[in-house]
């Protein structure tokens, strides 16, 4: 061994034997942390296939429904209607963009968010333009002059064929998430790490959906409303029912191509 070497940090050079030890140590530390980084990065759970076309704006035209949550209704080429949930920018619903009250024909700009065949549109600020005259309803048309929200006499309101209780009275076990993040804006967009964000989104007016997985993990999204069919976000936030396992009992309605679960929010139970 000999005399132990004494290290003084402000001297220009460390003693040789010590310097060799420290060099080996530092290399080992850096190598370990690189391996650790790879391990951490690799062991992350799967990311969803959802997508958010951030920064890509498209034009849309269709019927705007404001209740229970803002939606764009577009006629499908083969007949029938497709519904697109709308959201505002950030953690906001689209209510401030589309207004409230009865529906109307309009054009708007926005970015697509989609996952598992579900599509949402993030409406660009101030881009909703109500249409007065008859319109083809196709995509990418220049907007007509902005008139009142009424489209009466122009084109008939789409028949969404809301069928109340068609799915019967059912009990589901699932997780309440905000439709915007879950569909693709955030990954993860569900479970506890995302709870705070989901809470802000739903509080801000993004439509809440009940995410139900079957045995194979295939997800079904049920739009949540209260027993009267009105929006239910506020109660879900106040009762802290978001992003954890819950049991929901309610009536299953069909609205266009979408399932809507009508349930009393005060009777939604947490599953501890």
């Amino acid at each position: 061994m000999g005399e132990p070497e004494f290290y003084v940090g402000y001297l220009p050079r460390a003693p040789r034997r010590l310097a060799r030890f420290v060099r080996a140590l530092v290399i080992a530390l850096v190598a370990t942390s690189v391996v650790f980084a790879a391990l951490m990065a690799g062991s992350q759970g799967a990311f969803s296939n959802g997508a958010f076309e951030f920064g890509v704006e498209r034009d849309f035209t269709g019927w705007i429904e404001t209740e229970p949550y803002p939606m764009l209704v577009v006629e499908r080429p083969g007949g029938g209607w497709s519904t697109y949930l709308l959201s505002g920018v950030g953690k906001h619903g689209a209510e401030s963009e589309v207004g409230s009250g009865s529906g109307y024909w309009a054009s708007l700009r926005g970015s697509l968010i989609y996952r598992d065949g579900q599509t949402m549109i993030e409406v660009s600020r101030g881009s909703v333009v109500p249409q007065v005259g008859p319109d083809s309803g196709s995509f990418g048309e220049p907007a007509g002059d902005a008139g009142s929200g009424s489209a009466s006499g122009a084109k008939p309101q789409p028949d969404l064929s809301r069928i109340e209780g068609v799915g019967g009275e059912r009990t589901f076990v699932g997780e309440i998430v905000d439709s915007k993040c879950f569909l693709g804006v955030m990954k993860p967009g569900a479970t506890k790490p995302h709870r705070a964000c989901a809470t802000r989104c739903i509080s801000g007016g993004v439509p809440p959906v009940l995410l139900v997985r079957d045995g194979d993990g295939v997800a079904t999204y049920l739009l949540l409303v209260d027993e009267t069919g009105a929006s239910v976000g506020r109660q879900l936030v106040d009762r802290a029912l978001i992003a954890e396992p819950v049991r929901v009992h309610g009536k299953l309605d069909q609205l266009g191509d979408r399932w809507v679960l009508r349930a009393d929010p005060s009777r939604i139970e947490r599953i501890e």
Binding site: A38, A41, G42, Q44, A46, F47, N49
Partner: peptide, 15 residues
């Protein structure tokens, strides 16, 4: 760099 590199290689769908 390792984390981001390995992360995106194994999980191309990540944000």
């Amino acid at each position: 760099a390792t984390f981001v590199g390995v992360g995106f290689t194994l999980h191309p769908g990540a944000t």
